[in-house]
């Protein structure tokens, strides 16, 4: 059996006194795309933020390729090969597209710029535009392109299609499929079930800070009703 690239065990996280994640456990195999599904407030975004060290109160185990990530400061996580695209995209308003792409200091084997611009041709046209001048779709493309420059092994995406036009959602989906074919491991949080279904291999349902269902793509049809009920889709 393949060793997982990412293994999370007994993860607890809280905002102040308020616990959000309770004994969370799941893993992601190399090259796999896993979608975290759940209603608002289920703890999906907190799971990603805890994974990249942005939740101060957390305990448990997070391992990437066997290495313990818990004691590492955020700037070391990037060097381990985790690329995180937050829900609000995190494009820097005061930096141009070129500067946003030049910012990361990852493992030194990032995706070549030619390939990035082939995946996201819009970025070449907006090269000198400030982050604030980009449309929502362009910002999402830039946010994904930026982490790909870091030489990542695990791409972590929070709601990559939120608020985007259908054509852009298609484009993002196509890019993720491309990355999958290249062997990239992807963990995404997604409210858009149709999109998740298109790109993911496995689906984790989160409720009240725990994983309550772990389904492969083949198992989806028989659990369709249950998922629809839990997700409100």
């Amino acid at each position: 059996m393949t060793e997982p690239l990412l293994r999370i065990e007994g993860l607890r996280a809280a905002y102040g006194e308020c616990p959000v994640l309770e004994d969370l456990a799941f893993s992601v195999a190399p090259g796999e795309t896993v979608a975290l599904l759940g209603r608002n407030g289920a703890g999906k975004t907190t799971t990603l933020r805890a994974l990249v060290g942005l939740v101060p109160h957390r305990s448990g185990q997070i391992r990437l390729d066997g290495a313990d990530l818990m004691p590492l400061p955020p700037h070391h996580l990037a060097r381990c090969g985790i690329g995180y695209v937050p829900e609000e995209r995190g494009v820097y308003a005061s930096l141009t597209v070129a500067e946003n792409l030049a910012l990361p200091r990852g493992r030194g084997n990032g995706m070549p710029m030619e390939r990035i611009l082939a995946l996201f041709p819009n970025l070449a046209e907006r090269w000198d535009s400030a982050g604030t001048d980009l449309s929502g779709g362009e910002q999402q493309m830039l946010a994904i392109a930026r982490v790909l420059r870091m030489g990542i092994r695990l791409l972590v995406l929070d709601e990559p299609t939120e608020g985007l036009a259908p054509a852009i959602v298609q484009r993002i989906g196509a890019v993720l499929q491309d990355l999958r074919r290249d062997g990239m491991t992807i963990l995404l949080v997604e409210q858009n079930f149709r999109f998740a279904r298109r790109v993911a291999d496995r689906f984790l349902l989160m409720e009240h800070g725990r994983i309550t269902a772990n389904l492969t793509k083949a198992e989806l049809p028989e659990h369709e009703n249950r998922l629809s009920e839990r997700l409100g889709v």
Partner: peptide, 9 residues
């Protein structure tokens, strides 16, 4: 916060 995740100390 986010800048740290780009490998910047």
């Amino acid at each position: 916060e986010l800048t740290g995740l780009f490998g910047i100390n």
